[in-house]
Computed example of a mutant assay.
Amino acid sequence: MEENSHHHGQVIKRYREKMGWTRPQLGEKWTPNEVSWKYIAKIESGEKHITDSSKLREISELLDIPLWEFGLSEYNPFNITDPSQSTHLYSENLEVVTYLVEQTWYLRKVAPMPEVEKSVKRLQDMFKFYQTHAPPPLKLEREYLRLFAQVHRLAAIIDVENQRYPLAIRHFENMLKIGQGIEDPTTIALAFMGLGTEYERMGKQQEAVDYLELARDQTFQTERSVACLVNSYLARAYASNHESQRFLRAIDTAQAIADSLGERFGSAKDFAYYTMSGVLAERSYGYLELGEAQKSLEMRGEITKSIHINENTWLHAWIPLDWARAYFMTGEIEESILETREFYLRAKLLQSPHTFSRAEAMLKAIEQAGYEDVSAVKDFSDEMEDE
């Protein structure tokens, strides 16, 4: 054999030294009383060779050597009772789960809600299997729990879209428990944000502000993308609570961060999948909550352009509701109905009961304000009843 030719002994020596073990120490740990340090020396020098794949798997597990170093697969045909218990294979599984979480958030922006729901259900089924049959190795438990928290977050989003609001709160509470258990600021911040958003939806404005301020405090220890997302929703809560100065500070902070990060940001590291168009939409919403409809309308071109750049189908469907509310506030009822109808048509593509309910609520508000006899209002009301 040539002196510089590759053999398994070189790999074993490299990882043994990486562990800080001597040959006698390795011999004691690797089949005690059967493997001598002299045998290990001959293996490492290439004088002897290990041809038994089961022996290679043993030393791989002992020295934490990736199986590919020996030309082996993570799949062991001689031990298939619980292949998921391999640390390396489990790590690969979590990488797949991370990819699925990212893809599900992408679907949330571009696909009808039933498609998103299917993806979330697949993730829930995977974690149900893991919990029952394949709990993670200790050193992967933190990453496993971070991902499990994100599945709770996605499940909460599905509950909101299906108008199961109490269940959404329960998922965010479970997410918070996980985040606090592993002391992960990002998970804690996003859980508090979810709770704050739901309390704002319920009309409990001060509770919403309290939760979102807790979320903001956590972002001092997170990626800036998380701070951008949280400050956007905190601004929303401030506006709903009629705190105009705090609204401006929070939304200005979010937009400044977004400007520095670019049009799109967020990753599996922080799970803050957000865009500049989202920040701008929260500013528009805040202006409406504060009664400044004209400021919202003045943003229309900027927001429309940003939505197009971000390819955000979900926000593209929702934004006409802002224009409908703004025109209603300025007394331009026919324009308001036109935008409400556009919102309704786009909501049909999303197939979200929550979104439908908002279109119905907008029409009802216009009718209750005394405009039920306006021709455009009557026509749209008849159209909705025919659906």
Results as ranks from 00 to 15, higher is better:
Val209Arg: 10
Glu102Tyr: 08
Arg108Ala: 11
Met384Cys: 06
Trp318Asn: 12
Arg164Asn: 09
Trp68Lys: 15
Asp217Ile: 05
Gly71Phe: 02
Arg164Tyr: 03
Ser336Cys: 12
Arg14His: 13
Asp252Glu: 07
Arg57Val: 10
Lys269Ser: 07
Arg341Tyr: 13
Gln103Ile: 01
Gln294Met: 09
Phe220Cys: 03
Phe220Gln: 14
Thr275Asn: 08
Leu107His: 02
Asn33Ser: 02
Lys48Arg: 13
Arg122Ile: 08
Asp184Thr: 02
Glu292Leu: 05
Ala376Lys: 11
Arg224Gly: 03
Ser277Thr: 05
Ala268Met: 04
Leu229Val: 02
Glu102Leu: 09
Leu94Glu: 14
Ile333His: 12
Thr132Ile: 05
Gln103Trp: 05
Leu214Ser: 11
Trp37Phe: 10
Tyr344Glu: 07
Gly262Asp: 12
His7Val: 10
Ala369Glu: 04
Tyr39Arg: 02
Leu63His: 00
His6Ala: 08
Val110Cys: 15
Leu195Pro: 04
Asp322His: 14
Ala250Phe: 01
Gly262Ile: 06
Phe265Asn: 00
Arg170Ile: 11
Lys38Asp: 01
Leu123Ile: 02
Ile366Trp: 00
Ala293Arg: 02
Asp210Ile: 05
Ala156Asp: 10
Arg164Trp: 06
Lys128Ile: 08
Pro66Tyr: 01
Asn76Gln: 00
Glu2Pro: 13
Val35Ala: 12
Leu63Ser: 05
Glu161His: 10
Trp37Gly: 00
Ile158Met: 15
Phe271Gly: 12
Glu143Gln: 14
Ala239Tyr: 13
Glu223Cys: 04
Pro166Gln: 10
Ser86Pro: 14
Gln180Cys: 10
Met299Phe: 13
Leu338Thr: 08
Ser244Cys: 00
Tyr99Asn: 09
Tyr106Met: 06
Leu167Phe: 13
Leu107Gln: 14
Tyr273Glu: 07
